[in-house]
Design a protein around this nucleic acid. Sequence first.
DNA 1: CAACCTGTTCGCCA
DNA 2: ATGGCGAACAGGTT
Length: 269
Amino acid sequence: VPELAEVEYYRKQWDGGLGRRIDAVQLHARKRIFRGTDTRALVREITGSRLVASTARGKQMVFRFSGGSWLGIHLGMTGALRTEAAGFRPLKHDHLVLQQAKRALVFRDPRQFGRVRFYHGSGTPEWWSEAAPEISSSAFSARYVSDFLDRHRRAPIKAVLLLQSGFPGVGNWMADEILWRARIAPSTPSGDLTAKQRTAFRRATRFVSREALRIIGHDYADPPKTLAHPRALERGRCCPRDGTGLARRTIGGRTTAWCPKCQPGSAAR
DNA sequence: CAACCTGTTCGCCA
DNA sequence: ATGGCGAACAGGTT
């Protein structure tokens, strides 16, 4: 489910627990979701602490607790956060539950491609501080973007757009939407983009991120009308601009849809 | 029943 | 050392 805007949507699902004490932590330490994480410390430190703040950056979320605890959550492919009534009994895929007096904060992830991290101490955990510059920030400059494209010059632009080290929060449909707006064929080697295309590319990236956050981040149930692809991507759809049937192929390891007419170029291979 | 899936991460190779 | 690619991960949905 998770891309930039959905992540922000899910982060807010725990807002009801802000400022409130965690009475108990329920988790299955052996689950893949906790790989590399000290779950004993997690349980020990978070139990009895208060949830004080949360932030989303790209596809990463962090929940901070009194006493210097940081809980990092990545939703992977099928992760979701929600709130249940107090005393909630976890179901099969509810891997982490924070019990409060008036509610339970639940993390569910059937496929377990997501991840739970934990840090306790002064300062900031490196998995949070080392994140790439956000697309909405001033650090996401024309120079920064262009340098990133050149560093991956041989890889198709679609694959590069999915690299979280450069475009935090961009997922499969956002990537297709961005390339459609910028009129760039997804198979184009990143280093081949002209100066004009780079400008259009960066502009579209910022626009799609902002629109997705503005609309989906606000109410996930209401798909963004200013964005074309979420609906066009469905099988059998046409380009909203010129009606051409969309092409589909796996690029960068993922299903990719594009308009062969307004995104011309090295679409052949 | 078989194919497909909104995402990382690892191993292999250039 | 860095970059690029394909497989693997695990279960639900179509």
